[in-house]
């Protein structure tokens, strides 16, 4: 039997397909509409540019009255992202509104990437470097951007591009050995 929260998630999914916001995508997993996987592309002209960051979203039957639990699966280096990938973002906690949907959540996280809030650090090193040593901060970010490509095809999932295309389209110097 379908529930209001599952129906709402189907509407979110339909909207995401029919009117996709730039640079984000997401879909429920095959066996459970309460568990989603999503990809956020790093915003252009930021250190996160070209990153393909994978996230998981866990909804409950109380959605949309309660926010989902959102985590980065890809490694992240960001002042407001904890080591386990969970995100410190007001709209996912005390500023949640039931009018938000998956598209709004993903675009908010995307804009958080280049607009961190150093006042509520979840990663103190990232917060410190962001404020005191921007060059080093960006260097660390480039590293996780490169890692996001390497891990991109590793997990299962329907969202990844076909293998051949992924290799061919890489005109960036994606040499994975470069960083070690």
């Amino acid at each position: 039997m379908t529930t209001p929260s599952r129906r709402r998630l189907m509407r979110d999914f339909k909207k995401l397909q029919e009117d996709p916001p730039a640079g984000v995508s997401g879909a429920p997993t095959q066996d459970n509409i309460l568990t989603w996987e999503a990809i956020i592309f790093g915003p252009q002209e930021t250190p996160f540019e070209d990153g393909t960051f994978k996230l998981s979203l866990e909804f409950t039957e109380e959605y949309p009255n309660k926010p989902p639990t959102v985590k980065f699966i890809s490694r992240m280096f960001h002042p407001n992202v904890y080591a386990d990938g969970s995100i410190c973002l007001d709209i996912l906690q005390n500023r949640w509104s039931p009018t938000y949907d998956v598209a709004a959540i993903l675009t908010s996280i995307q804009s958080l990437l280049d607009e961190p809030n150093p006042n509520s650090p979840a990663n103190s090193l990232a917060a410190q470097l962001y404020q005191e040593n921007r060059r080093e901060y960006e260097k660390r970010v480039y590293q996780i951007v490169e890692q996001s490509w390497m891990n991109f095809g590793e997990n299962e999932g329907d969202m990844e591009p076909k293998e051949g295309e992924e290799q061919g389209a890489g005109d960036e110097p994606a040499a994975p050995s470069g960083s070690n």
Partner: peptide, 10 residues
């Protein structure tokens, strides 16, 4: 009214 659709359930 400001909107025809319920912003909570859509």
């Amino acid at each position: 009214v400001d909107c025809d659709t319920c912003a909570i359930c859509r």
